[in-house]
Computed example of a mutant assay.
Amino acid sequence: MMNHNLRAAALLTLGMLLFAGEDALIKTLTRELPFSQVLGMIGLAGVLVFGGLLRLGGGRFWTRDLLAPAVVLRNSGEAVSAVAIVLALGLADLSVTAAITQAVPLFITFGAALLLGERVGWRRATAIGLGFVGVLLIVKPGLAGFEPASLWAVVAAAGLAARDLATRRVPARMSSPHLSASAFAAILLGAVLMGLVLGETPVPPTAAQTLLALGCVTLTITGYTLLVAATRIGEASALAPVRYARLVFALILARIVFGERLDPLTLAGAAIIVGSGCYTLWREARLSRRASALVPAGTAPVQPASGASGSRAA
């Protein structure tokens, strides 16, 4: 199992690097194009890619499954988080946005306890509370370094958590390409509404800008593929800390590419979020193994609140 975990960790580390690169490309595009257009280009590319895969597999996009409450909620969370992420990356620092969105596993566990009635013990409850303290240190409400735009990253984290919680109730018959195509379609719709609200007018993208948008989707799809491969061969508890490599890569890109300076409160908050998230994921994996060992063969064990979060467009 050790060799499997090492291979999985290597795959997941590469996936986290690709996701961090995706964020950097989005931030670069928002400097040159309207926010809604950046989001729309990514959404359209995703619809074409996953819609094409769906067609190749003989599936249809317009089915009654798209109206299932869980699918509607999942796609709504996807759209809200995508809009918020683009706004956060465009208006706030990459380092701040990346650090806050690493709190998604904590939001998921909190949401599972609050909305789904899943049991969360005092250890994970304490970790969640500490994680939210870390978020406050990064946002700095009421302090001189407060950036209102950083609140969009909090909205994005909540949207991603809602998406992942809703995914648990999605009809099992929906294929991954179908679910992904519908998610990108929701993102495209969100981009249209975003443009109307902000009063933005699309501009003709250059060839370089179009390639950057395609690069975002390519990094997302490749990163998600690596994420799935890693989680299939490695143990969740062993991979939990590796997920936060994305934050490390994002901080490096923020410093080198965008010249951002990291203040002590942001670094402290990021460290608290990572520590709390790692403990929460490790604890949930341990409880899941314990539940599986206690339940008789042939009976599905009750799963604890899962804090695992994949790609935004997964």
Rank of each mutant, 00 (worst) to 15 (best):
N5I: 12
A8K: 05
A10G: 08
L11D: 00
L11P: 04
L12D: 01
L12G: 07
T13D: 00
F19R: 01
A20Y: 04
D23Q: 10
L29G: 03
T30D: 08
E32L: 08
F35C: 00
S36P: 02
V38N: 02
V38S: 08
G43E: 05
A45R: 01
V47H: 02
V49A: 15
R55K: 14
G58R: 04
G58I: 03
F61E: 03
W62K: 02
A68P: 00
V72L: 15
L73A: 15
R74S: 12
E78A: 14
V86G: 02
G90P: 01
G90L: 04
L91I: 09
A92S: 15
A92I: 09
L106M: 09
F107P: 07
A113T: 00
L115A: 13
L116M: 11
G117K: 03
E118D: 15
E118A: 07
E118V: 02
R119A: 15
R123D: 08
R124N: 14
I128R: 10
G131A: 11
G134E: 08
G134H: 11
I138M: 09
K140L: 07
K140A: 13
K140V: 05
G145N: 10
F146M: 13
S150L: 05
L151K: 01
W152G: 06
A153Q: 01
A158H: 03
A161Y: 02
D164H: 06
A166K: 06
R168W: 08
R169I: 00
V170C: 14
P171Y: 14
R173M: 07
M174E: 10
S175V: 03
H178M: 14
L179N: 12
A181F: 07
A183C: 03
F184A: 04
A191W: 01
L193V: 14
L193A: 14
G195I: 07
G195D: 11
L196C: 05
V197I: 14
L198A: 15
G199W: 03
T201E: 14
V203P: 00
Q209C: 06
L214N: 01
G215E: 02
G215S: 08
T218N: 01
Y224C: 01
Y224A: 11
L226K: 04
T231Q: 13
T231V: 09
I233H: 05
S237C: 03
A238G: 04
A240E: 04
R243T: 07
A250T: 04
L253E: 01
A254T: 08
A254G: 12
I256A: 06
I256L: 14
R261C: 02
L262A: 13
P264M: 13
P264T: 13
P264K: 13
A268V: 11
A268C: 12
I273R: 10
V274K: 03
S276R: 03
C278A: 11
L281F: 01
R283S: 15
R283K: 13
E284H: 04
R286Q: 14
R290C: 02
R290A: 15
S292I: 11
T299D: 09
A300V: 15
P301R: 09
P301G: 12
